[in-house]
Simulated assay, not measured.
Amino acid sequence: MISRRGFFKTVGASFLSMMALGSYAVAEPLVRLRTARYALTPPGWTPGLKLRIVALADFHACQPWMPAERIVSICEQANALQPDVVLLLGDYVSGMRLVTDRMAPDVWAQALSTLQAPLGVHAVLGNHDWWEDAEVQRQGGGTPASRRVLEAVGIPVYSNRALRLEKEGRGFWLAGVEDQLAILPRRGHPEIRKDDLAGTLAQVTDAAPVILMAHEPDIFPQVPGRVSLTLSGHTHGGQVRLFGYAPVVPSRFGDRYVYGHVREGGRDLIVSGGLGCSGLPIRFGAPPEIVAIDLG
């Protein structure tokens, strides 16, 4: 039988352990950053085409969790990886209420303008870039402020668009679909999605491989084999992972597309764990990350 002293020692130790875990979960988004690396040659990839992609997702810019200085620091580390192309996968705006200050869109956009790559920096929008824009929500559409500020600093935003790029004479297509959760449901009006996968891929006019940017990975079952690689964010890797399991995943597929490299039916998807936080300013077992992908 445990003694009174032993009982309180056990309770005290448990309390301190919980405090330590809680402190780590809050500190992780602020101080930790890793690089997740992948190397693959997708089916149908052009022989001899070697391409390094650096992908950044889910900044959720705000004070104090993702200030402009941290965004610049992340961009510097991304540049140091010497990417051929940088892809931004959406959710630049924070939807959290536990913040000390919002960040003006032009401030985080200016921070992102420090990214550099020979084949450019390219972006899609995420659900929070739509949800936190009161005007486009009221109208049920329009151009979100996130798109305007990105394009103002020279970063093109792919809203159901495809563009052909080349490296050393070998071509590939970069495509991006608009957000799948763009307009929140209102009384008498259902949720409105803005993505057009078929229309986007219809712009591809030759046999060169296609890289698709889609903020939410839930689109992946609809992606045809014609697409060499799909890149997504949105899930934050679960944001909290216990023994490899994420109890909460913002996807109708549960943990099927929660994180990392997924191959289904000969098709490839890579889901970034993201950089910022949503809901609560904590991460545990799912540290912020830069994604570096070597193709070919």
Rank of each mutant, 00 (worst) to 15 (best):
G141V: 12
P156N: 11
K167C: 03
H215D: 13
M213V: 07
L184Q: 14
V157F: 10
A175F: 10
L212N: 05
W130D: 10
V136H: 00
L119C: 08
E191K: 15
V153S: 09
D206Y: 05
R193E: 14
D195S: 14
P185E: 11
P118T: 09
H215C: 12
D179T: 06
R138A: 15
H189R: 15
L181T: 09
L125T: 01
N160D: 09
L115K: 12
E132H: 01
D195G: 07
V149A: 10
L181N: 14
E132T: 14
A182S: 15
H128P: 12
W131N: 10
V121G: 01
G140N: 00
A182T: 03
L125P: 03
V153E: 06
N160G: 09
L150E: 08
L119F: 08
R161S: 05
Q139P: 02
L125N: 00
P118Q: 12
V223P: 07
Q222H: 12
G154R: 12
E191W: 13
H128D: 09
S159V: 10
Q116M: 01
G141N: 03
Q203A: 15
W130Y: 15
P190I: 12
H122S: 12
R193H: 07
H128F: 08
I155T: 00
N127F: 07
A175P: 07
Q116R: 15
I155G: 02
D195W: 04
A198T: 14
E178Y: 07
L165R: 11
R187P: 10
L174H: 15
Y158D: 01
R186G: 09
L165N: 09
A182V: 03
A202I: 10
G199M: 02
V177D: 02
A145S: 02
D218N: 13
L181C: 13
P209H: 05
R170T: 04
T143G: 00
Q180S: 14
A145D: 02
S159Y: 05
G142S: 07
L174Q: 08
H215V: 12
R193G: 15
P185Q: 12
F172R: 05
G188Y: 05
G188Q: 11
P156F: 11
L163E: 13
R186S: 14
G199W: 01
G154E: 13
A152L: 08
T114V: 02
E166F: 15
V153D: 10
A152Y: 06
P217N: 10
G120W: 04
L212K: 05
L201T: 00
V124P: 02
L197Q: 10
L115F: 05
G199F: 01
L150P: 09
K167F: 04
Q222I: 04
P118W: 06
A162L: 06
V124N: 09
A202V: 06
L197H: 02
V210G: 06
L184K: 13
G176C: 11
A134V: 04
V136P: 01
G169D: 04
W131K: 05
I192R: 14
P156R: 10
P209Q: 03
W173G: 13
V210A: 13
Y158R: 12
R148S: 13
V223Y: 04
T200D: 07
T205Y: 00
R186V: 10
V124E: 02
G176Q: 08
H189S: 14
I183T: 08
S146W: 01
L197F: 11
D179S: 04
D206V: 09
I219N: 11
I192D: 05
A214W: 06
D133V: 01
D133M: 01
R186H: 12
G140I: 06
R138G: 03
V157K: 04
I211T: 00
